[in-house]
């Protein structure tokens, strides 16, 4: 199901773990779908004075694809300027991994979202203007998380015993 590149990143993930005193954190995902991704970034000026993501790390609760895309995304974002990092898409991550199964594309979307949120968090903390593209994505991500949250609550309140005559939660 997964190609060797994906398996390699899964087996030996890069930049895995919590960061102490990060500049910002992006948290996406939900317990219902079993995908939760936290991205930590450190933002610092480089030798030329440009503001870059000098360090990235992540913690992920998810499938093989979720872990592999976390790893690949962290590689891609490291050393990039904020604008460059914002421009990284989930397609880029999936392509760099040599492709993902169609049903697993949403895991790569999660990595792009987590990085987006981390940068959003950084700019917000700095009280800096948010680029349009970033703001639009932030809104979409927050909306999706809220709707998942709704489904999560609905799901929890659904007493299986009371589901008689209804399709089970799975189908």
């Amino acid at each position: 199901m997964y190609n060797e590149k994906v398996v390699e990143h899964f087996r030996q993930p890069h930049n895995m773990g919590k960061m102490s005193e990060p500049s910002a954190v992006g948290r996406v995902g939900n317990m219902l779908c079993g995908d939760v991704m936290w991205f930590y970034i450190r933002v610092e000026p480089d030798a030329g004075g440009r503001e870059i993501i000098s360090d990235v790390s992540w913690e992920t609760f998810g499938c093989t694809a979720a872990i592999a895309t976390s790893s690949m995304m962290s590689d891609l974002a490291k050393g990039k300027t904020l604008d460059e990092a914002i421009a990284i898409t989930n397609r880029d991550v999936a392509d760099k991994l040599g492709g993902l199964p169609a049903v697993k594309m949403h895991c790569s979307a999660l990595a792009a979202d987590a990085l987006n949120e981390a940068i959003h968090d950084y700019l917000t903390k700095q009280a800096r203007p948010i680029p349009q593209a970033l703001a639009v994505r932030h809104e979409r991500i927050q909306k999706e998380m809220a709707s998942l949250e709704e489904r999560y609550k609905a799901f929890l309140s659904k007493d299986p015993k009371a589901q008689q005559g209804e399709a089970p939660a799975c189908s």
């Binding site: 219902l32 499938c63 299986p160 089970p168 939660a169």
Partner: peptide
């Protein structure tokens, strides 16, 4: 969780395994 509805196994859900 490759299923598009993202919910865990219907059997584990039926057993009320904590999410």
């Amino acid at each position: 969780c490759s299923s598009p509805n993202l919910e865990p196994s219907h059997v584990l859900v039926a057993l009320c395994v904590p999410l």
